[in-house]
Design a protein around this nucleic acid. Sequence first.
DNA 1: CATCAGGGCCCTG
DNA 2: CAGGGCCCTGAT
Length: 327
Amino acid sequence: MSRRETLRVKHTLQFSPTAPFNFDATMHKPDHFPSTDNDWQPGVRWQTMLWRGVQLGLRIENRGTVGKPRVRVSVWAGRRLERQFLDSLRDEITYRYNLRLDLTEFNRRFAKDPQLGPVIRKWRGMRPMSYCSLYEGMIIMIVLQNCTVQRSVNMLQALFERYGTRLSYDNKELHCYWPPDTIDRASEQELRQLKVGYRAKNIKRVTEAFARGGFDEMDLRRKSRDEQRTALLGLYGIGPASVGYTLFDGFHHWDEFEHISPWEQKIYSKLFFDVEPGAPVPVDQLLRLFNQRFGDCRALAVHYLWEDLWWKSKNQHIPWLEKLIRL
DNA sequence: CATCAGGGCCCTG
DNA sequence: CAGGGCCCTGAT
């Protein structure tokens, strides 16, 4: 059912991110579940993108160093892209991967923190990133809810195979997201056949908001955090946990920390208090600690510690963590 | 084999 | 504002 396309036209964009910039720790997040719209190896991230209705294949490549960062993005498409389109794409890539984020103040402020300081030095220049659009992010939030990692992987893959497009470029084959109106035209029953369960209704209603409800990512970016939170919570099937992640990753509120889910609570308890998962530290106590220690950088600071943990887990066994993440 | 809890959220009482 | 139900999967 899934359509396929070979992208033959190539353009190139050059970026000079603010220094320091850690390419791999920004372009690969080991805590993200694997999905077939992207791939990574040290120095290169492949990422498909549906931008202004055009299917693109990106190859994002490290061409510099932490101190002198350069990034080259090769853009494959089915046709030649006009200048104005490429300019808007450049802006969007800069936004999504936070290429203009200035970390110097953050680095200075926490250099002496006994826990965070060493981690900042290790991952110097790492930024949060969101590789997808807000709509696509909402789909990811829905398939994450109330299930194991493998099940999330299966659901997103089924959606890609039914509604997405397989793009061939740069000797890669990756899926590209569908535009909202594709699923807007599909029935809930059809979605259920992809084993998304009760989420079929949520996917339909979120999709409808983007396809016909005037829900617009770019409008929302210009609004206040409270307005963003209210709007996101208004999406059917999107609650406080999903909104928390989105305000951080998608809307760049580096102090957004209102919600901690039970499994994260257990991990934070071990990370910050070294207590066993059986008797986790209360959520409000964790939030108070983050606030005291990291202030208006609390979400960014915890991101550093969180990612560090996941990189460690990628390279060596951390039994207590593996037990908590339900692969 | 069957049973059940679970990386939330909505709805009801 | 507490608690039941929801699809499916994997652990027990």
